[in-house]
Nucleic acid binder design. Structure first.
Ligand SMILES: [Zn+2]
Ligand SMILES: [Zn+2]
Ligand SMILES: [Zn+2]
Ligand SMILES: [Zn+2]
Lengths: 159, 159
DNA sequence: CTTGACCTTAGATTCAACTCCAAGGTTATA
DNA sequence: TATAACCTTGGAGTTGAATCTAAGGTCAAG
């Protein structure tokens, strides 16, 4: 039996977080002391471990609520239900990663075209790319010539 | 010269969004009509295009403010400043992608171990992984045997 | 009997980037 | 002149996951 502060310290979370989980139904302490203090049992601690593990894997608290409700009543759920939660998450994640990779490629192209030196940004290829409609990026060493050691290899090859 | 609705329609944004950009200093219309309507010039439209392009590449509005203030006063900034903004974003993005890939791997391992069938979740390997402390995932076809066509190749190989 | 560490609650705040609302003013058309 | 389609403003709401605050109750030690 733990009080909130003990459980928090044991699992490296804030007491605020445990109160938040209580309020939102993820983890209600199984009892209260006479004076109203939350008292967490070993089962509660196990449930907290479940929550923290699921969080570490990338589930949202909403997902975790769903998993916990299945967990509490396993025999009335099928593998399909559980795997469904995971697979939806996986698909979201893949979409998110694809989007970020797209951003990354775009930014990488911008970065490669800029010398990054102390020269005036008047002809900076990054700003020019953002000003213009075209998706082509002009390498700076055409418009804005200086020590080629500044440029990354990607861009040097064109100059 | 465009009124807010025209500009919004031309660039497929909501009028609310343009008002938001005005309020937050990203895009202030260069004039107002007598009755107080926002009037956007061609330069304003160009600035909006800059904002939208930067957004599409993955910059936050805060980043964009910074880029715009450089853009407005290019000669007093260096390529290093501009490239700095891009490279910081790139580093953030890489960290984020790495984190999401870690989540993805974890979820993929969970998903692979579960049959996803209509069988009771009582011995579902996903739930078991979340209950247990170990990071190892037991494939279901050891505890919970049924039509092996359910399993993915990753998991079948162990059964 | 008081200090200090702990606990309680409801409710406000944070971040981003909008999005929506109410209540009212303007303008073009029928 | 009325109707609809615009526009204005300030301010509230959204999502997620906390984090923080204020005002107060509890408990063990000295
Ligand atoms: Zn340069
Ligand atoms: Zn540059
Ligand atoms: Zn199964
Ligand atoms: Zn399963």
């Amino acid at each position: 039996m733990y009080r909130i502060g003990e459980l928090a310290q044991r699992y490296q979370v804030k007491t605020d977080t445990l109160r938040f989980y209580d309020k939102h139904g993820l983890l209600k302490p199984s009892s209260r002391s006479e004076s109203g203090y939350r008292i967490y049992s070993e089962d509660d601690a196990q449930r907290l471990r479940f929550i923290l593990r699921a969080k570490a894997i990338g589930f949202s608290l909403t997902d975790i609520s769903e998993l916990l409700s299945i967990e509490l009543d396993k025999s009335n759920w099928a593998c399909a239900d559980v795997k469904g939660v995971v697979d939806i998450k996986l698909a979201d994640l893949e979409a998110k990663i694809a989007e970020l990779n797209y951003f990354k490629t775009s930014l990488q192209r911008l970065s490669d075209a800029c010398c990054g030196g102390p020269e005036s940004a008047e002809h900076c290829s990054i700003l020019e790319a953002l000003e213009s409609n075209s998706s082509a990026i002009k390498c700076e060493n055409q418009t804005h010539r200086h020590d080629p050691s500044h440029y990354t290899k990607n861009c040097q090859s064109k100059g």
